[in-house]
Nucleic acid binder design. Structure first.
Lengths: 111, 111
DNA sequence: GATTCTACATAGAGAAACTAGGTATTGCCA
DNA sequence: TGGCAATACCTAGTTTCTCTATGTAGAATC
């Protein structure tokens, strides 16, 4: 987050759920994917991502499964759960409400 | 903030600068004004507002001036400074950048 | 006379993100 | 083959925000 990184706060979980709502992903992949999809804007730090993934798993919103590659390496793929999907929908709604309220203040309609 | 209150983080300063960029305001008025303009969405707590105002003043973005009412009561009006105006413009830009990036993830264009 | 509204303030708790460090494997290049 | 970059995971400690809870005090209302 080059500038205005404080804006991240409160949105990390939504972004992660959103990605995993589309397909299971592992940590390193998530970092790369978020950077790519946001055209370089989101550059998650590991100290942000991994604790967030563990938090989401503890909350039952995602579930991690170790997968052994033919190379012998281990990757931990996270899958979204039903509860996670429901939370994703909820969070998307909250984000839209928040956006609406912000726009009322930040770009007040003349009148 | 009824739900999704974490979304506030990092945006309090922008909202405050935005209001004071239009006219000087005092604390209690800011709380009421934000609630009114956001159609009830923003309900700032005092424990959020006053520390934020002091933070902005320490940073030289706003300046508080006590004003004595005819009733004998004191109100502390905060005025935005030149530095505050510059920061407001900057923060608005950061907000738009953030919004753009969020939309790329949250509502990915099919393709 | 009591409660509510106006108006300011802070201390402490909790949560979230970052800094900075650690481990280990793989692949590349000189 | 020796070193470096990339891949891939992790956490302890710090900082920063926001909220909870509380305090003070005058004005208005009931």
């Amino acid at each position: 987050m080059p500038q205005g990184r404080e804006l991240m706060k409160g949105n990390v979980d939504s972004l992660l759920l959103c990605l995993m709502g589309q397909q299971p992903m592992y940590g390193y992949q998530i970092i790369k994917e978020l950077e790519k999809r946001s055209q370089g804007y989101f550059k998650f730090k590991e100290g942000t991502l991994y604790p967030a993934l563990h938090r989401l798993e503890r909350a039952g919103l995602i579930q991690g499964k170790w997968q052994l590659l033919s190379s012998g390496q281990q990757r931990k793929y996270y899958h979204i759960t039903d509860k996670g999907l429901a939370t994703l929908v909820e969070k998307r709604g909250q984000w839209l409400d928040f956006l609406f309220a912000m726009n009322l203040i930040i770009q007040p309609s003349r009148g």
